[in-house]
Design a protein around this nucleic acid. Structure first.
Lengths: 158, 158
DNA sequence: AATATACCCGAGTAAAAAAGTCGGGTTTAA
DNA sequence: TTAAACCCGACTTTTTTACTCGGGTATATT
């Protein structure tokens, strides 16, 4: 029950673009380097994300990628769906899925998978890139103040 | 982000055993037939579940499998863990997992995966086989005297 | 004791998915 | 004109999944 590297890399790349949203387009090369992802593989993913309408690309010399919308308006769920397909623990509970198996009407497990799916969606579709940026902000603020990221304190006096 | 057939079959098999918990051990053959699972594949799974302490087996002529504990005391999460390993959307957030990657301290995505994991655990570890049996009861009550695909009966209740 | 039933188990295999690579093409600022 | 970047489909390798198989062991019954 793992999210693939496509999902993980996709999120990291989008997050990287979100953190530099104010600046112009960011090159594939730079994103790949900062996130330690193979360039050729990331190129695939960014292509997918572009076709899904989540990023826009600028070709040519000063080109690169940027988010198609501000970070507040991009949900993690969208990213995952773009690179991994529908979010569902089983085939039989894909959102808007018609192809119920013959046992669906009396299938108790299916109810469980639905609940699981919904709890996953609750997290993924309620979190935006801006939310994650804010958390990154807190982390780096803590690090700047000499507090290790998993420590409780966010700021320090003086 | 799918649960494998091991997880799905494992749950269905355990649910089958739960529904017949009162009666003696149930044969592999019968479970496989009622849940439409290949016998040899199910045998593997039940072996795993036995080694995990979730079912006990009785060998020989009148043998079969039964739950190691009453349905109230078996959580779905235990079953999934037994047949699929730790429940976590990424390697970096496995419960009790030490091997954090080098980027863990400043990794924002990781926080998200933790939240996702926790929401999954909330569902899987709060649901017992007894809960599912109760839901099955409600379902069959609605369809009482109705048609069952396998002509199955739920309990030995008169 | 023989037998049939039923669990036990490791090894093996085929198919699918995941992960990542490659080479050649197009756009565009300088 | 050139070099920086994106574009894209096809290809390969690796890993995981989903099974199958064949022979072994325990045991109730006859």
């Amino acid at each position: 029950m793992r999210v693939s590297t496509r999902g993980q890399y996709g999120l990291r790349a989008m997050l990287e673009l979100a953190l530099h949203y104010a600046e112009g387009p960011m090159t594939l090369r730079r994103v790949a380097a900062r996130q330690a992802i193979s360039e050729s593989y990331l190129e695939q993913l960014l292509g997918t994300l572009r076709r899904a309408g989540l990023v826009v690309s600028v070709r040519g010399v000063q080109g690169g990628y940027r988010l198609a919308r501000p970070p507040e308006e991009i949900r993690v769920g969208e990213i995952i769906r773009a690179v991994e397909g529908p979010i569902a623990p089983t085939e039989c509970v894909v959102e808007g899925g018609e192809p119920e198996c013959w046992r669906a009407p009396h299938c108790v497990s299916r109810l469980l998978w639905e609940k699981l799916r919904d709890s996953m969606l609750a997290v993924l579709d309620s979190t935006t890139l801006a939310d994650l940026c804010a958390e990154a902000e807190v982390m780096t603020a803590g690090a700047r103040a000499g507090v290790f990221p998993h420590g409780g304190r966010t700021t320090s006096e003086g």
